[in-house]
Design a protein around this nucleic acid. Structure first.
Length: 302
DNA sequence: TAGCCGTGGGG
DNA sequence: TCCCCAAGGCT
């Protein structure tokens, strides 16, 4: 553990940053439906699953429809997993829909149908990792936990460390960095967790930060250093999507979602007219996203 | 642990 | 057009 004196020093140094970001958030926060005061923990959990690697603008309509259809974990658990995948539509990473369905089942079986508040219980749910568990505990239950996503990592790297971008993710190091800045008061901490994410998502963005709109520009270590450019090795370039197996899987899933009966393989060949089709079908079945039955492929359990 | 997993917005 | 990158998690 860090010596108490050091913690006190850091908190003293960073308190104005937290205050300024929270004050900015009070005005600048986007009115996202899952931030409403009366939403359930389940509603928050659903939003966090959908927001993993997916932008707010694409999530919002899916979330609205999802919550209307399955307002509780028990409602979703009672539906076939394939219906969750179908409702997920084109949010991407459809395994998340399967995991959310599984998590709902686990919540019913292990927690009486109520989303658990305890961090370890949350972490034990399928598809819930360090970010999502803390986000639910903090945002749905108001508990004081550091919540660190990619936006917060970037904000801390710039404002506190004076670097243009965050280093490689390290759950432990990232949580410690946020803990050093997090206000003591639980309500204030909750607000700062959300505010830091919001700042990173809307102002302190990766490509072209809008420092003129930033509430802590005057306290930002990166700005004070003259916005030095990144000297870190760029992260490996994402593989080209066009022509990839990923694309092929997405094309197959699109067909299976649209169909309400098994789709014969020959009907998929025009959609993926090359040797990616076989790999896509094999891996989709292995992932549980598709089943082979009645001479065709279909969503699971529907 | 590094690679993999969809899809789309924006520079 | 092309490429980056996005409220991560799993294996």
């Amino acid at each position: 553990m860090t010596p108490p004196a050091s913690i006190a020093d850091r908190e003293h140094d960073h308190a104005p940053i937290a205050s300024a970001v929270v004050a900015w958030f009070a005005d600048a926060a986007r009115p996202l439906p899952w931030r409403a005061a009366d939403v359930s923990a389940w509603a928050v959990l659903v939003s966090e699953f959908m927001l993993q690697q997916t932008q707010v603008a694409r999530v919002q309509p899916r979330w609205e429809e999802w919550m209307r259809r399955w307002p509780t974990p028990a409602d979703l658990a009672a539906a076939p997993p394939g219906e969750a995948v179908r409702m997920w539509d084109r949010l991407g990473y459809p395994r998340r829909a399967l995991w959310l369905h599984r998590a709902a089942t686990e919540i019913v079986e292990r927690h009486g149908g109520r989303v658990p508040r305890d961090l370890d219980a949350l972490l034990a749910l399928q598809g819930v990792g360090p970010y999502t568990a803390r986000a639910v505990a903090a945002f749905a239950f108001g508990d004081r936990h550091p919540v660190v996503d990619t936006n917060t990592r970037r904000v801390l790297a710039r404002a506190i460390d004076g670097r243009p971008d965050a280093g490689p993710p390290s759950s432990r190091r990232d949580l410690e960095a946020m803990a050093a800045v997090l206000p003591d008061d639980p309500a204030e901490a909750r607000a700062f967790n959300a505010a830091a994410m919001e700042l990173g998502a809307t102002v302190c963005v990766a490509r072209a930060p809008r420092c003129d709109a930033c509430p802590i520009a005057g306290r930002c270590a990166w700005r004070a250093a003259g916005h030095p450019a990144s000297d870190a090795p760029r992260r490996p370039r994402q593989a080209r999507f066009a022509g990839s197996d990923r694309e092929a899987r997405g094309l197959v899933m699109r067909e299976l979602r649209a169909a309400h009966r098994p789709v014969p393989r020959e009907d998929l060949e025009p959609v993926v007219p090359d040797d990616r089709l076989g790999r896509a079908l094999t891996t989709l079945v292995a992932d549980g996203l598709a089943v082979h039955s009645h001479g065709g492929y279909a969503l699971p359990g529907s």
